[in-house]
Nucleic acid binder design. Structure first.
Length: 297
DNA sequence: AACTGTTTACAAATTT
DNA sequence: AAATTTGTAAACAGTT
C-alpha cells in the first residue's frame, strides 16, 4: 500500500532540471504540447517548491525553452485565442533522458548544422525547405487529441489522406540522406496533414513511468492532470528557425513501445501490452522523414 | 501593463 | 582540470 501523501520532501527542490520538468509537463497532456502558462501550472501543482520565487524560476524556464533545441514552438491558429505559442518536444529528442527517467539526461540534444547549410546560409528556399521538413517530422506527432487515441481502431488503415505522409514520401522520397521534400514545400501552410503517426511518439514514456518515478522521489503519486478539459482543435505546425537536414536518425526505433497499438497511455496497467504490429511501420516512415538531430558528443 | 520569447553573460554544478 | 550542463539575472522586443 503506498502511503498517502506525506509531503515531507514537498518543500525541497525537486531533483529535476527545468528541462525535465518541462518535458514532464508537456508529455503529461494528451496533446503533447502546452502553452507556457500551463507548464507553469503543471510544475506548481506538483512541486510546491516552485510556488515561490516565481519570477526567478519562470524566467529560467523561459530561458530553457528558447535556448534548448529540444523544445519547439507551435503557433496557435487564429481561432485559438490566448497568449503565446504551444510548446512541444522536438520529435527526435526522444531518448533525451536515460530510459525514460527524468532524473538523468543524456547528452545534449542539438539540431545539427551540416555543411550543406553552411554553403548557402541565407537561401530563402532552403529555409522553407527546412521548415517543411521540420513540420513534416512534427506534424505526425502533434495532431490534436481526436486522432490520438482511436486512430488505429476507427481508421481502417485503408484511407490515406492526400497529404498523408505515406503519399508524400511515395512521391518524393528518394534516398536516405538526400533532400526529398519537394511537395512539402507546396504545403508549407499545412494544417491539412492527417497521417497515421499519432500524437504518441516512439520515445514517449508512458504516464506510468512518470508516475512511478515521481512517486518514488516524493511519495506522492502524480495525478493525471487533464486540467480543465482543454481541447486544441488545431493541427499545429511547429516552427523553429533551426537548421536541419535529412539524414539518418539515431536510435529512433530503439524505443518503440505500445503506442503503436493505438492504446491510450493509461490503458495497460499491468502488462506493457505488446500487441501485434498492426500499423504499417510508422517507424520506417519516421525514419525516412526525420530531421537529423544528433546528440552532440 | 503584464505576459511571452530571445538573447547574452556569468556563476555554479556536474561530467569527463 | 577542462569541458559541458544547468541555473540566474537581465536587457529587450513583440504580443495580448
Amino acid at each position: 500500500m503506498p502511503r498517502p501523501g506525506r509531503n515531507t520532501y514537498s518543500d525541497q527542490k525537486p531533483p529535476y532540471s527545468y528541462i525535465s520538468l518541462t518535458a514532464m509537463a508537456i508529455q503529461s497532456c494528451p496533446e503533447k504540447m502546452l502553452p507556457l502558462s500551463e507548464i507553469y501550472k503543471f510544475i506548481m501543482d506538483r512541486f510546491p517548491y516552485y510556488r515561490e520565487n516565481t519570477q526567478r524560476w519562470q524566467n529560467s524556464l523561459r530561458h530553457n525553452l528558447s535556448f534548448n533545441d529540444c523544445f519547439i514552438k507551435i503557433p496557435r491558429r487564429p481561432d485559438q485565442p490566448g497568449k503565446g505559442s504551444f510548446w512541444a518536444l522536438h520529435p527526435n529528442c526522444g531518448d533525451m533522458f536515460e530510459n525514460g527517467s527524468f532524473l538523468r539526461r543524456r547528452k545534449r540534444f542539438k539540431v545539427m548544422i551540416t555543411s550543406e547549410h553552411l554553403q548557402k546560409p541565407s537561401d530563402a528556399a532552403q529555409y522553407l525547405q527546412q521548415q517543411a521538413k521540420l513540420r513534416m517530422t512534427a506534424l505526425g506527432t502533434h495532431l490534436p487529441q481526436m486522432t490520438s487515441y482511436n486512430l488505429s481502431v476507427s481508421q481502417p488503415s485503408t484511407f490515406k489522406h492526400p497529404f498523408a505522409i505515406e503519399n508524400i514520401i511515395a512521391r518524393d522520397y528518394k534516398m536516405p540522406g538526400s533532400l526529398a521534400f519537394s511537395s512539402m514545400q507546396s504545403m508549407t501552410t499545412g494544417y491539412q496533414i492527417h497521417n497515421q503517426l499519432t500524437t504518441a511518439w516512439p520515445h514517449m514514456y508512458s504516464g506510468n513511468v512518470i508516475d512511478a518515478e515521481y512517486t518514488t522521489a516524493y511519495g506522492v503519486p502524480l495525478k493525471s492532470l487533464s486540467h480543465g478539459a482543454q481541447s486544441f482543435p488545431a493541427i499545429p505546425v511547429p516552427i523553429k528557425p533551426a537548421p536541419a537536414s535529412v539524414a539518418s536518425i539515431p536510435a529512433l526505433h530503439a524505443h518503440l513501445p505500445a503506442f503503436l497499438s493505438g492504446s491510450p497511455q493509461s490503458l495497460s496497467p499491468t502488462s506493457p501490452g505488446q500487441s501485434s504490429p498492426a500499423t504499417p511501420s510508422p517507424t520506417s516512415l519516421l525514419h525516412s522523414v526525420a530531421v537529423r538531430c544528433q546528440e552532440v558528443t
